[in-house]
């Protein structure tokens, strides 16, 4: 269900923890699985749980508790815009409106062509570079302006 690279990456996480605590690697394993497959289908979560010898329900608890996991389909490019107070003070509110208008969707929605998903995020811990967004959870874009956001969207095919 997962590529050999992903499985190797998961195994490299497992060895960080005591031999009888494989479950500790579930957060990383779900992240790696989601990065390969785009989003966490129920089958994928179960697969990860079995791989780590843990009850599937415990893996579902993790997948649904942490907000960077996607347990529903998302577009190829997920843009998570921080709108928390320091970002808001620096124009994240206007930026959010700009993104919604440009993409024709609300927060939590995906464009019809499956290209973009727009999400409202919570504090990303980089408030000195506000406003900011994350692209597919792992790449941060900071000191955003409407022009910079437009350029970013154009780049993401």
């Amino acid at each position: 269900m997962l590529s050999s690279q992903s499985l190797a990456a998961i195994d490299a996480e497992v060895v960080k923890y005591p031999a009888d605590q494989k479950q500790s690697a579930v957060m990383a394993a779900l992240r790696i699985a989601q990065t390969e497959k785009g989003w966490l289908t129920p089958e994928l979560v179960e697969y990860v749980a079995h791989h780590l010898d843990m009850p599937p329900i415990a893996a579902f608890e993790v997948a649904t508790f942490y907000n960077m996991y996607d347990t529903r389909p998302v577009g190829r490019h997920k843009i998570t815009l921080c709108t928390n107070l320091p970002c808001l003070l620096m124009g994240a509110g206007e930026l959010g409106e700009h993104l919604k208008k440009k993409l024709g969707i609300e927060f939590g929605q995906t464009t019809d062509d499956g290209r973009y998903t727009l999400k409202e995020g919570e504090c990303m811990g980089a408030c000195g570079d506000a406003p900011m967004c994350l692209h597919n959870n792992h790449t941060m874009h900071t000191q955003l302006t409407p022009e910079k956001v437009d350029a970013l969207l154009d780049k993401l095919k």
């Binding site: 928390n84 107070l85 320091p86 919570e122 504090c123 990303m124 811990g125 980089a126 408030c127 000195g128 570079d129």
Partner: peptide, 11 residues
């Protein structure tokens, strides 16, 4: 786990 809005020093 620096997520308190306004905090970005540990980063």
């Amino acid at each position: 786990d620096e997520g308190e809005p306004g905090t970005f020093k540990d980063r």
